[in-house]
Amino acid sequence: MFDVFRERRRQGKRTIGYPAEAPTLPDRYRGLPVLDDSRCPDGCKSCVESCPTDAIGRDSRGLALDMGRCLFCTDCLEACPEGAIRFTHDYRMATRNRSDLVVRSGVELALAEPLDARMRKLFGRSLKLRQVSAGGDNAEESDLNVLGTIVFDIGRFGIQFVASPRHADGLVITGPVAENMKSALLDAYESVPSPKLVIVVGASAISGGPFRGHPEVSDGTDRLLPIDLYIPGFPPHPMTILDGLLRLLGRLEGMPERIRAEEPPAPPPASGPDPLAPIVASTATVEGPPTSS
């Protein structure tokens, strides 16, 4: 017994200081993409053609990147020698509307607005969620599970994953909605008492992700259910999920909006700009280098 106490003391307190403190993310983390289409040479479609999920397009308003399809890979960065696309360290990406996930040059992302007053009164301090994996690949599921660990301790915000849809206030859906899971997903949705929320996590659940167009999947949830919150990523970082949930509940109002990146351990190579090196979003206040990781 004393060994257990000793070990507990040795392991120490591990819950992050978020939301009072900014979370720390690795320097190579690929968060919110920013576009600068003033760098695009005329007629260049390198990034558009390189994208595995056709998340990038160009129309009369210029270059656009759909985070609902984006796999946050590096194919467009490698395809674009001009640096017109960069991934920042900003983990805040959740939106209320599907169209808000489309990122454009010089347009600020419309982050998720809180629920209305009635829904906040119901769910703001206690939100029970039922997770349904509908063809999810266990990466999204793992980073949802991790919110329950002592590091994120999602319970301190009154959010809990429950076993039965009948005990839940909403569904958290992952995966492209495999045809073989469609009816079970719709049954689960019906079983959640109203009013209810639907939160979709990851590119697969939002748009089908890499499975888009497969006859075995439904290309995500959009044509099946009304969605209250979109959390993009492949998979989203746990901080992106937590930020989205807290934003939806209005729990981040009045909190300082800060992000912080780990100091890169080595300077970028001298030969020209490194297309894989992320930059920090211009929309956020950046803290100085962290004193510890």
Binding site: S50, D75, G136, E179, N180, F211, E216, V217
Partner: peptide, 17 residues
């Protein structure tokens, strides 16, 4: 329940997907 047609979609590759 999780079948997403991966092997079938690999045919014709390698490609960007």
């Amino acid at each position: 329940f999780q079948h997403r047609g991966i092997e079938r979609a690999m045919v014709g590759g390698p490609d960007k997907r």
